[in-house]
Computed example of a mutant assay.
Amino acid sequence: MPDTPTALEKVEDALKALFDAYAPLENVTFHTARSPDEAFDETELDDGPQVLILTESFEMNHDESQGQTQVNASLICEVVELSSSAGIVTRNTQQVIAHMIAAIHADRTLGGRLEDLEEQNVAPSGRSGIDASACSLLLDTVFYTPRGDLFTIVGPGGSAF
């Protein structure tokens, strides 16, 4: 089976590229293809916060007016940091998330791929360890694909990604 990225993987990767290009987030490392079950080692956490970009869920609706599929997806950006402050959103994590939201606000369509990208909430994650804690930023997005093709994104202007 060819390794063609799905539309959702393309959204995750475009979000990572947006964050990577945003100067205030230069000390944060973003991951899109890393399993949430893979623990971060102390060296990675010493280098700064680590953020996993994951798809939590998605639903599809037939858009009869365009002959396309509307995809509504919930993404999670899980910020993992070296801290023993489980169950709260630390000030460092608040800073990281505030800069992530500023980056999103600068390009809510991820270069014309999406109809919209909106932040929903922030909450401590249950994935905290002894020396690390995590908080999740939940994002909702809407984009379109051709009917029957969850590999291609059709941007609002008709461009294919």
Score class of each variant (00 low, 15 high):
71 V>A: 05
29 T>E: 06
84 S>C: 09
55 T>E: 03
25 L>V: 11
52 L>M: 07
73 A>C: 13
22 Y>S: 09
81 E>H: 06
100 M>R: 02
53 I>H: 03
64 E>Y: 10
63 D>V: 08
94 Q>L: 08
61 N>A: 13
103 A>Q: 04
93 T>D: 02
87 G>L: 09
117 L>C: 09
45 L>W: 09
28 V>M: 11
31 H>V: 08
59 E>P: 01
54 L>S: 03
103 A>N: 06
92 N>F: 04
29 T>R: 08
82 L>M: 01
34 R>C: 08
61 N>M: 13
24 P>M: 13
78 E>A: 02
66 Q>S: 15
118 E>Y: 12
85 S>K: 14
30 F>T: 00
27 N>A: 15
28 V>H: 07
118 E>Q: 14
34 R>N: 05
93 T>K: 06
110 L>V: 08
93 T>C: 00
109 T>D: 07
83 S>Y: 01
76 I>C: 03
66 Q>I: 08
55 T>N: 05
55 T>I: 10
31 H>L: 14
33 A>F: 07
50 Q>F: 07
49 P>A: 15
49 P>F: 13
88 I>F: 06
82 L>I: 05
74 S>H: 07
35 S>A: 09
35 S>T: 09
92 N>Q: 14
96 V>N: 00
101 I>L: 06
104 I>G: 00
43 T>F: 12
93 T>G: 01
82 L>E: 00
87 G>D: 05
25 L>A: 06
46 D>V: 08
108 R>Q: 15
115 E>D: 10
106 A>W: 01
55 T>A: 10
100 M>Y: 06
25 L>D: 01
42 E>T: 12
115 E>M: 13
123 A>E: 15
25 L>P: 00
90 T>I: 08
52 L>V: 09
28 V>E: 00
42 E>N: 13
36 P>A: 12
53 I>D: 02
102 A>T: 15
102 A>Y: 11
53 I>L: 05
112 G>I: 06
91 R>K: 09
58 F>Q: 00
105 H>P: 00
111 G>V: 11
109 T>S: 13
66 Q>F: 11
64 E>K: 14
57 S>L: 10
64 E>A: 14
107 D>I: 10
67 G>D: 09
66 Q>M: 12
64 E>P: 07
53 I>F: 10
78 E>R: 12
47 D>H: 11
72 N>P: 05
31 H>M: 11
38 E>I: 03
89 V>H: 04
120 Q>S: 11
86 A>D: 08
97 I>A: 02
62 H>S: 13
29 T>H: 07
48 G>C: 09
68 Q>C: 11
104 I>Y: 00
43 T>I: 13
67 G>S: 08
113 R>T: 00
71 V>P: 00
36 P>W: 11
97 I>W: 03
80 V>E: 02
100 M>D: 04
108 R>D: 03
111 G>K: 05
42 E>A: 14
57 S>A: 13
32 T>A: 04
63 D>H: 10
101 I>N: 01
61 N>L: 13
87 G>N: 10
52 L>I: 05
29 T>Y: 07
112 G>K: 10
65 S>E: 13
42 E>K: 06
106 A>S: 15
27 N>E: 14
76 I>S: 05
80 V>C: 01
118 E>I: 12
38 E>G: 02
92 N>T: 13
